[in-house]
Write a protein that binds this DNA or RNA. Structure first.
Lengths: 193, 193, 193, 193
DNA sequence: TATTAAGCGAGACGGTACGTCATGTCTTTAG
DNA sequence: CTAAAGACATGACGTACCGTCTCGCTTAATA
């Protein structure tokens, strides 16, 4: 319906896939620092122009590759209580962080978002804020049910959850585990009425 | 004790200062992405080799410049209660984050630490872990006085504090403010016995 | 036959010309010692890579420039006698050596051929030996007609001619003139039967 | 008479020798192109300043080293006839050129003399012209005895001799041998009265 | 017997050019 | 019009040497 019939050759899905696969492989093999547009083009047997035509930067290619491969869309749980919802949310996130390739890629993207302001904007809007919104739904329900800790607003709860996750990813490089998830739940969703 | 008197010309303190100043200026003016060793050398009137002789990478120069200029060593408060100590710690950190130049530099360093593993190791050991240790002392005293929230270990408290700070710096780009500091205190150091 | 129609952009003849011109100008202005690839690139408005892509060293660029500009291919005379042929050959060579720019360039190339063995091989094969072959034809005809001095082989005659030319170019820096040419003819192609 | 007695430490003959030896070794091992002042200093255990204090350039060091080691002063023969003198002169020169290290060094010096005009002047005056003068004596005696070929002046004879020697050294890289020496004698000092 | 003036090894310094790499654009031929 | 190929101008990289300049230390001649 969108571009139903334009003249000219169609975008090659084969090239697109080859680019995304090559990008993930190269990033995994030598790290994001060694990832180059030239390298991606060479590995995928594609012209550089084909990459520049469809993505604004190599970080966007990587983000696209990650999104295409790993399903980053953690579904929003609704278990009836904030405690259960948060536990499930953290558990699913934990599963993601376990795959070191996904973790490494997220690290690289967050890094690039700091260095390249244009990509930073896209990364925040297309990825970070969507994740915030997902958790936001859970927290909003908690707020309505008065399940949040006293004196702590919804925004802060979200910041604490994602902050802890990202900090462990970026700084200590020990992605969150079940114990840590348990402690976060204890902190943010205490049992007492 | 180490190299008290070796033969040969001594390191030029003047060049060192010129390099650090030029580095901060360039990073502030055009952003870390535009910071180059050549640029630093040109601006500071120094040969490139002099930079490579003393620092392993431009990120190390920037870290050195930041450490030399802004006193990042937040002193460890001891006000008698975890609540007061944490509040003071956050307040002082808040003051730091307010200076946008410091915040921008920290963002760039954390980013570079993800992309360049060698620098990452140094950044963690020379900066991040020292900051952890500082807060660690406060939290340890709190643990001894049983002032920590139930079911939450000292390590987690530290992760939550720094995580929230860094997340706001990197992701939402709204460095912590007094309200947020208050909510963190409410969450981590509740008044009730 | 070689690369009739490959995909990809064609080599820019404009860049090639600009490089050769800039090379000759720079060598003339400041001498071969001051000739640098960077300088050539800057003067000709070309990327360094474009130079490295097509020539192995700056000496090769200079040789190419010389060959393209000054027609070094002295035609082989055939006047019927060795005496006349040699006189004409020396006269034409004399004309070349008169242009100080050509003389300076030849000096530099011969020098570089000594210092850089790889270029030396190319210089000998692409330039020196071709010149030898040209004179070789003349001398061979002389040998057939028994016009060579007694007890002196063709190879030696060639060595003496080019040796004297080069020696005056390199050592005394007084390129050959008409009188010297006359004496060489008297020595190598005596009139008496 | 010059600097009979000044205060201060005397020039270290040991360092001088070490420098000259290191220079010859390095030039022999990796070629003149790889010869550097830093390399000489490192190999000889000497400070760079000590080299710069006594020699204007590395080529001068090499020339000094060659002059100190190989006795380049070919004595002027006086055998009674030009034919015999020239034969002896060529024979002695041939002996020199046989040692490939000497030949390589001469090649490098002649090359450097083209590229570095200041050294070129010194090389010509201190080396090339002295050699010319030596042969000049022989030729002058021949001229007085009317032993030179008809129509060929003394200067040209010298140019032909050295020209041929140098050309074979630089261009064909086949230093003169006994047969070639014989042919040169036949050409320049014919037997006929 | 000091003092003073060079020479010395070491090595840091401001420079310049090197040859390589990657960028993002442009041009050519093929589908 | 898209694609692969590949040349192009640009600009930074990290390295190698250049020739100069301190350093702290000998080593002599002079006072």
């Amino acid at each position: 319906m969108t571009d139903q019939s334009r003249p000219g050759r169609k975008r090659s899905e084969q090239s697109r896939q080859a680019i995304l696969v090559a990008t993930l492989e190269l990033a995994a093999e030598a790290g994001y620092g060694a990832l180059t547009v030239e390298g991606i083009a060479a590995r995928s047997g594609v012209g550089k122009q084909t990459i520049y035509r469809w993505w604004p930067s190599k970080a966007d290619v990587l983000l696209d590759a990650l999104a295409t491969k790993a399903d980053l869309q953690v579904p929003i749980p609704d278990e009836g209580s904030f405690r259960a919802d948060l536990a499930l949310f953290l558990d699913r996130t934990y599963a993601l962080g376990t795959k070191s390739q996904v973790a490494d890629t997220l690290r690289a993207l967050m890094a690039q978002a700091q260095i390249d302001p244009e990509f930073g904007k896209r990364f925040r809007e297309d990825f970070l804020f969507r994740r915030r919104d997902a958790l936001g739904e859970i927290v909003e329900r908690a707020r309505e049910r008065a399940e949040l800790p006293a004196g702590v607003g919804p925004g802060t709860v979200i910041d604490v959850v994602f902050g802890t996750l990202w900090y462990r990813l970026l700084a200590t490089r020990e992605p969150i585990g079940p114990e840590m998830a348990g402690e976060l739940v204890a902190l943010l969703a205490p049992t007492s009425g």
